[in-house]
Design a protein around this nucleic acid. Structure first.
Lengths: 392, 392
DNA sequence: TACTTCATTGCAAACCTTTGCAGCACCACG
DNA sequence: CGTGGTGCTGCAAAGGTTTGCAATGAAGTA
């Protein structure tokens, strides 16, 4: 085992004797149903008995078995959160917001990472299906039809993807891409590259569409580069290609790629923003820490997490899953309400964009460092919509 | 709802009719037990029947209910992973390694974030207890005694904390802190600060101990600063204090704090490493992206994740939890094997450390930028021990 | 006093699956 | 022909909980 130091000891330890509702019933001299009610419907049991039962439960260290409860009620009070890549700093704020929102409603969140792998996504939905009351699918890479199919197995809310008939939380990256392109055109750039992300990404398609339109409108030429891995190395890998293409500005699929690209250009001796301007998307905290600080399209990730949880729980509550009456009954479809909410994005101008070759020298060659003229006050907090606005 | 755009539609959709083993049995004309065996013990059922059952199952879209199965077998094939802060880039590599290792052994991983909150930690262990076969506790903030108590409820493996009697995966931050101090002393620093992390962190205590000893041995004075939040803002918040203290070098609890500190010093006009040298711990990817690149103690996070999963599964397999015989039987303790493994750390020298006031001018004042003289080849890949070495 | 109402509790079925045991048919062997 | 074995299947209990229904007793009402 080489360098690793291992010490091992064997010990007799109190085995995990699972204490059940039955033990508590025996100890407190009541029927198990009374114990059950003490926990799940306290108003139905005599205060005296209640305290006695609670005391015994406390004493024995009893904890209700949520799995067994779920078997009957059909509600686990868990929600699943499937994430394309935990290592992408875009997601943690979303995860935390979702967890906090869920906690307020007495739900727990189980996060799972798919490594951007569609197969893992599908498998995880199946694995989670019976253990959670619903699943949040964040930036899924699988096909729309598969998502629809899976949604029949477990309630789904999709984030960063539009699937008709399913509740979706979207961020207006179209608007964001447009603002970015307009910003660049305004700075005097006429030859711009769009650094694409994963092919199966909805965000990617939206950006292409919107950026293309905005470039046409602004009289600029837009070169599409990609698809690429949405990571730092994905960005640095195309630095050479960017240089050869001769563009003076780049809009990247996300901040990670933008940062990677800047690194790559730096290694090639290309200066940002003096020779090439770079814009990212997401406004991850990292984008404030690199030099130059990154101009980027801020996405309201926290609001997205909260909204998604709200939508899931709302949809979930109105149609309990474990319909008691089995077989013979009406197998009619449930009238289900689906909503799509679109959250605003905001361009945050920092130091990675500067004047391009066609910049009007109206003002005496503004210093490329420092906040651009458009820069709003402060670090650019997006006007994130609060997540509680879900139409019925 | 202000800026948010919401569209809502109502649709009739196929309800999630849960198809059970019974439906499959009816459809294929066999008893439910045969269906069960088709999935969990295929060799016991006639090949012909098997294909028929499988066809029906496929047809009906049957998926075994893992929760119900767990109720009987006592095994969920899930493992829980409780993380102090998902947003800390230290954790994602650990999470991914754990997930990959678990997947190889046909387990799923549920991640939960506690926001560095001990209460949330305890609550999550309880919530997970019956839904997983074991829990990995990463950098826990609760007390040792509480951890021991919880370990009676569900098998636990602790990462980044030493708890006697429990399996632990540790990283040798003591050694790391020593190397860092020796590195600084060697550069001619005699007045060094230790930027502490959370008070309840085992790593924090280890670092204090080891750094203190190393400083004494090297004839340097060590100032303890903290406790602080183990984040970027936690680091930048003490920049002023660091400047006032007059030290020429700082060892930070982790990279995030180190980076925050550098930011803060930069804002104060203090240059790193010319005026103050800074060393971090963890070697997160970010530490290669900031300027100056961070000198840091690399911790083998991936190996830690893999090892922890291995230890949990090993401990788990040898003592199945759902002991069939209930009450009357022997309530003796199970003979349980616990091991502690210590993984190596490695100092990676980059650009945030330079000569101190007592540097020997042996060589003509080396340029402070660029890799230091000790820098090994490449980006400093730590010689991480592979995680499969767990003694029994 | 007789009847209704209410609060509290017990009973037992149900949720979905696994699994020890037993039954059955069939074959081979002596 | 009897015996034993084998391969497959069914039966029913078990796992921990919830919940509709019924039973009990007490209090209130006429």
């Amino acid at each position: 085992m080489g360098d690793t130091c291992v010490t091992a000891t064997t010990s007799d330890e109190g085995a995990a004797v699972p204490v059940t509702i039955r033990d508590v019933a025996r100890a407190s001299g009541v029927h198990i149903s009374t114990v059950s009610r003490t926990f799940s419907a306290p108003h139905l049991v005599n205060p005296e008995t209640r305290v006695r039962v609670l005391a015994c439960a406390e004493d024995l260290g009893y904890r209700p078995n949520r799995a067994a409860r779920a078997l009957i009620t059909g509600r686990t009070h868990n929600i699943g959160l499937i994430i394309a890549d935990i290592a992408n700093p875009f997601f943690p704020p979303l995860i935390k917001a979702a967890e906090s929102q869920a906690r307020h409603r007495d739900y727990h969140v189980f996060v799972a990472d798919t490594n951007e792998d569609p197969t893992a996504e599908e498998e995880l939905v199946h694995a989670l299906a019976k253990q959670v009351d619903g699943v949040l699918l964040c930036s899924p890479r699988m096909s729309n039809s598969l998502i629809e199919q899976l949604s029949r197995e477990v309630p789904l809310v999709v984030v960063n993807r539009q699937v008709t008939g399913l509740p979706c939380v979207l961020m207006d990256v179209g608007q964001g891409a447009r603002s970015a392109i307009e910003h660049l055109v305004g700075l005097g750039h006429r030859s711009i590259a769009l650094l694409g992300g994963p092919r199966s990404s909805w965000t990617n398609r939206e950006m292409r569409r919107a950026a293309g339109a905005a470039a046409r409108a602004g009289g600029a030429e837009l070169t599409m580069l990609g698809p690429n891995a949405p990571t730092e190395v994905g960005g640095s890998a195309v630095a050479e290609q960017v240089r050869r293409s001769g563009v003076s500005a780049v809009l990247a699929y996300n901040d990670l790629m933008a940062i990677g690209l800047i690194e790559g250009l730096d290694a090639l001796g290309v200066r940002v923003p003096q020779e090439v301007s770079v814009v990212g998307v997401d406004d991850i905290t990292l984008s404030r820490l690199t030099r130059p600080k990154l101009t980027t399209v801020a996405t309201p990730t926290g609001a997205a997490g909260r909204t998604a949880v709200d939508m899931l729980l709302q949809q979930d509550i109105e149609s309990p899953r474990g319909a008691r009456g089995s077989g013979a009954g009406t197998a009619l479809g449930v009238r289900r309400t689906t909503a799509q909410v679109m959250l605003q994005t905001d361009l945050v101008i920092r130091d990675s964009t500067g004047p391009g070759p066609y910049a009007r020298p109206a003002r005496p060659l503004a210093a490329p460092r420092g906040p651009g003229p458009h820069c709003p006050a402060g670090p650019g907090i997006p006007t994130a919509a609060t997540g509680d606005a879900v139409a019925s």
